[in-house]
Design a binder for these strands. Structure first.
Lengths: 199, 199
DNA sequence: CTTTAGGCATACCAATTGGTACGAACGAAC
DNA sequence: GTTCGTTCGTACCAATTGGTATGCCTAAAG
């Protein structure tokens, strides 16, 4: 019997999310998570038709919204848009626990593992990354309109560059199992981004 | 009976490498590859004690040497070291087939999947990445000594940045299933790197 | 009070997985 | 020609995996 019966579906989602962060989707053992939660397969298959739907739900209800909300916050930033992006990058360093850098970005992990294997995953992952990219790009463009960002700045290119470095930073930190590779990239990007601030 | 009996061990390695590129290590089905090669488990377990050793061998004998050789070539480059790095980046765009960008970098894939799960993988992957990083760093330092690279350049930081962007570029191209994200990063890096060339 | 539908447990299962035990063929060495 | 080690095929296996069939329990609706 589960101790907390408040929202079992949610619990199943979150525990599986954790397990998937460590083992990947293919390495995710649904029944093992079921045992950890001290429930049974009955509950599991009551809420989810199977492993694939579970994976989709983790993306649609947890990982996706979180990422889009995090970068969507750029919209509400009252300051220099470039500083807004930098703030988001720095906040990542503060909010994410050390272990997260050793396990890598959930988004990046799933991209590597699933993008070529499952179209449903690929579409969802692409949508999330594209959402992040558009949020950053929009911030830069707002900066350009307000003459806070150099007119010749290619907003699309810079936004893509930020994402590339973000994903790469997670990869490298994971390869070395050392978050300092993430931190260094953020600091380099900070310098790089400030160059685009208007005179 | 295998048609070509030339070097069965090698064939097993290479076919498994291909399968691992697509499905990952955990998704790699040894016996499925065995069927593809039209051999049996007898051969498979004759040459490899098991799946883990097979994975290690693919890294130690194929992926590792290839990567280190590719970037080690910077040593033999007779020209501006910065241009040497740029040449290596551009050659990647030419030599790698389109499918490779959809499947992602074998190195990056394995990092994401295995670094936190298996110490043997982590050590091997880290060694390869570190080897690449050192090769790039050494090239920049040679450039500094020859006064071809600005004296204030932080070779270690630039080398790390190149790797971060490289891994990130593979990730993003894979997320979008579109190699143009890789190509764009290479071009941006080219510009960025040329800024370090001495006056 | 009865009916009904969601919420979950119990007890199965077929297929797959990585792995083993064993032996046959074959060539080299003596 | 006998021995012997390498190379691989055959036949098997225990454990795991994702998944299903079924029914009990409860609460709300009628």
């Amino acid at each position: 019997m589960p101790i907390l019966m408040k929202d079992l579906r949610r619990q199943i989602l979150e525990k599986n999310r954790e397990a998937m962060h460590l083992h990947g989707y293919q390495g995710l053992r649904a029944d093992l998570v079921v045992k950890e939660l001290a429930i049974t397969k009955g509950a599991y298959y009551h809420y989810f038709s199977g492993k694939q739907e579970l994976g989709y739900c983790i993306l649609d209800e947890l990982i996706g919204p979180e990422h889009l909300h995090y970068w969507g916050a750029l919209n509400d930033y009252f300051g220099h848009p470039i500083e807004g992006i930098i703030e988001r990058l720095k906040t990542l360093r503060i909010e994410l626990k050390n272990d997260y850098f050793l396990l890598g970005s959930e988004l990046n992990n799933l991209i590597q593992e699933m993008a070529p294997l499952d179209e449903g995953f690929q579409q969802r992952l692409q949508r999330i990354v594209e959402g992040m990219r558009l949020a950053i790009r929009a911030a830069i463009e707002r900066g350009k309109k307000a003459r806070l960002v150099k007119a010749e700045t290619d907003a699309d290119e810079v936004a893509t560059m930020v994402l590339t470095n973000l994903l790469g930073a997670f990869s490298l930190a994971k390869a070395f199992q050392d978050r300092k590779f993430f931190d260094r990239t953020i600091e380099q990007m900070t310098e790089y981004l400030r160059d685009f601030k208007g005179q």
